[in-house]
Design a protein around this nucleic acid. Structure first.
Lengths: 199, 199, 199, 199
DNA sequence: AATGAATGAGAATTCATTCAT
DNA sequence: AATGAATGAATTCTCATTCAT
């Protein structure tokens, strides 16, 4: 068995897995150390506190989303609706655990709700999410509308992730993705105002 | 009459206040006892564990919403849009703390995310929320559409509560309420299908 | 349902049942109160402490043995071996729980081992047990031998109760009873010394 | 080398001393920690619960008896009666506290009586005790008789330890040891059946 | 970097007991 | 006699963190 290469990133990923499964408060430093194959005390060589570790975990997820999800919004050679699909597909992969069939929540958000210290970090995440969506909508809608739609979309997505998690039923988030997509696909020309009907 | 200093409901309400401010994990039984003016041990006279107390707190909030918020959906002598407004107004009152200007989250939901044991209770809450909203939409929309709209609305509301909380900015939830309302007000006649445009 | 006549003796009996099943330390005043259909606080009208209650329970058992078991040793109109049989039969009834098939230990002894305060009470019990057995042996053996045999018998009986309890197997105590009996039955005449062989 | 203040065995021995003096229930983890010169929390570094500690204490005693007491039964180059004497002497040392003059009980047995979870461990102890005694008797008696005598001897020894403890008088256990010894010494040839007389 | 023993503060919980009513 | 709320001290256990090696 090759000696496990334990480095900061490895610990972050193991922590991420645990925090997602059992939340910040229900995961002890001991659990994390065990998952990494090192001892509790050794964690403090990499992170000066559990909070700092959590912060890095959230930043890691943020970075992951930036590269794997949000980036898809800016691949200008691809049509808007396809870019949107790509984003959704990439993000769905993150929230489902294929092996257990269980939904993960947005660990960062959940932590921010419970530990206000993480609020600023999570705001950055939302800001990037918002920007990505807005960028796509801006293809079809005027700035102000795109703005409003993006804000709303982020809320819808987050709300439906929560619903999917509480009911352990993917359909909430899947339906939301579909609906968001249709807002792009159905608007053939750049629109200046929101119509009165319902999507 | 016993030398009653507190009663179950009083403890529940004090706990609710603390759990909302600092979350379940960050509130100790000692904190709760102090807030109630009794000793830690005395709490176990009323609740056999911290989890049982939390469960009762969530049920209390659920009951409160039933009576103060969801009930407004069924006051049939009032027009649908007004009933909706009443619901929204009542719920906004709950999530804002007038004195500190801070937003509260949906404590029950947040706990459910973090402590899976509370999931079933929180589902009941969502079910009642969903039913109330659907009941109003059913005035204007066919069953199936009302259903879909209600499901979506719950997600939107929960998502925007979360956003409001993370950004400590009421406008997310206020905008959502407005948008949800417009879906009722703008549909003058009973509709059989969702239009293609965006609200 | 006729109101339960709760009196000192009723509480003692309920406590006895619980102490036997789960030992002194594992039985709380609350458990006892519940079993009696009264409230914890009310117990203190009858007994000023848990220790006093336990003491009375032990005395109750002692008294019970005096009347139901030891007394059989002094029914002079009955032959010694029959008196012995009667004693053994009466005591076996006490240590077996017919309904669960489980063995009870000698609760008093066990408590005395663990709580030295009960030592004096339990000594009285043993003294009476010893006297009863000695009285029977005195029919067949000289004073000194009867003395020695009685002392040994008490130890054998207590040891085999313990074994029966640990292995949950009545045969230990049953075999001991048989052996003790044979010491009486096989000695046809009054003996002045112990033979060299083994029973 | 770590800054080791104590090790597992040291804690076990300190616990043993306390459990013997004051019983399992009357000894707190705090007491044990104090006796070891460490903090309460540190105990959980070595044992995950008080019960696990107790289990290890019982196993330690069992092991001690195996090596220091029961092993003497199998030193085949020594005559049976001498082997018996050696066993008895070794075990007496364990039950008397030379400095206080007090008798200790068989802590394991007493715990088993009070905490049923320890029953299986204590059965193993008794089994080894039984085997050792039977092995010696088998020198002088036929298998079946040795069996019966051994079973009886274990009960007699345990019963007399109990008596010695309750009356704080070593003579019970000493007399028992003498009597058991005489069963070996007085049988000059291998016997096939128990005689009718009494030892 | 890594260890792992030790810390120390604090958590939830239990429970015998008291006492005003 | 009885209630049952409240006490308060003790108990087991957890856990982030420190530090000598």
């Amino acid at each position: 068995m090759p000696k496990q290469k334990v480095d900061e990133q490895y610990i972050i990923i193991q922590s991420l897995i645990l925090f997602r499964q059992r939340s910040f408060h229900s995961t002890s430093m001991s659990d994390i150390a065990k998952a990494c194959g090192i001892l509790k005390g050794s964690l403090y060589h990499y992170f000066k506190s559990k909070e700092e570790l959590m912060e890095k975990v959230i930043r890691y997820v943020h970075q992951y989303f930036k590269v794997e999800v949000f980036a898809k919004a800016y691949e200008e050679n691809i049509p808007a609706n396809q870019r949107f699909k790509n984003m959704m597909k990439a993000s769905e992969k993150i929230f489902f655990d294929a092996s257990t069939g269980k939904m993960y929540g947005n660990m960062g958000v959940e932590s921010a709700l419970v530990i206000p210290e993480f609020n600023p970090i999570i705001r950055e995440f939302f800001q990037d999410f918002f920007n990505a969506i807005k960028h796509i909508y801006a293809d079809k809608y005027a700035e102000e509308i795109a703005n409003e739609l993006a804000e709303r979309s982020v809320a819808e997505v987050e709300g439906s992730i929560m619903m999917s998690r509480v009911f352990n039923d993917k359909s909430y988030i899947k339906n939301t993705h579909k609906r968001l997509l249709s807002r792009i696909e159905k608007s053939t020309e750049k629109q200046e105002k929101l119509s009165d009907s319902i999507v």
